[in-house]
Amino acid sequence: MSKRIVLISCVSQKLSHRAKAKNLYTSMLFKLNLKYANTLEPDGIYILSAKHGLLSLEQEIDPYEQTLNNMRTAEVKMWANKVINQISAIVSLEEDEFIFLAGDKYRKYLLPQIKNARIPLKGLRIGEQLHRLKELIDE
C-alpha cells in the first residue's frame, strides 16, 4: 500500500525562539498549507527547510535565516540531494505519492527523483495560493 506524503516549504516568518517545526513557522501561507495538508489525511507531513533539509513537524529547531531563493544552483542541488536521501530513508520515492506545497526552487531538483508527485498550487502567486488554500480547506 503506497503512502501519501505532503512536503511543505519553510517560510521566512518564524518565532524568535526554539520550537517544534510545526509551530516555528508563523506565516499565514505556512499555516494554511499545514491545515490543508492535514485535510488530505496523509501518512506523513514534512517541512522542506533550507537549513535542515527534511524536518518532521515535531522536530525542535532554533529559528534561522536561510532560503533557497538566494542560493546558487550548485548549492540548491546539494540541498536537494540531502533531502532525497532523507526522504528515501523513510518512504519510497518509487511507490509513494508526494504532494508538494512548496515553490519551484524547493521542488525543482526533487521532482526528477520522485515518481508520483502532485503540485496543487503550481503556478499560483502567494495571494492566489492563500485564496486557493482557503477554498480547498473549506471543501
Rank of each mutant, 00 (worst) to 15 (best):
V6Q: 00
M71I: 05
D104N: 12
L32D: 14
M78E: 14
A74R: 01
K108N: 08
Y106P: 07
E75L: 06
Y25E: 07
K14W: 10
R125W: 10
D43H: 14
N38I: 09
I119Q: 08
A117N: 10
Q59I: 00
I90Q: 15
Y106I: 11
V76K: 12
T26H: 03
K22C: 14
I114Q: 01
Y109V: 01
L133Q: 06
D62I: 00
E58H: 05
A102R: 05
R107S: 15
N23L: 15
S27R: 09
H131C: 10
H131E: 15
R118F: 06
E60N: 03
K51R: 10
G127V: 05
Y64E: 07
E58R: 05
Q113P: 00
N70P: 00
D96M: 13
E135Q: 13
L24S: 08
W79S: 03
S12R: 14
Y64G: 05
L54F: 03
E97Y: 12
L110G: 11
R118H: 05
I119A: 06
K105F: 08
E41N: 15
R107Y: 07
L68F: 03
H52D: 10
Y46R: 00
A102W: 04
C10M: 10
I61A: 04
W79E: 02
L133F: 09
S27V: 10
Q13T: 13
K105S: 12
K3P: 04
P63Y: 01
K35Q: 12
L34N: 02
L7K: 09
F30S: 06
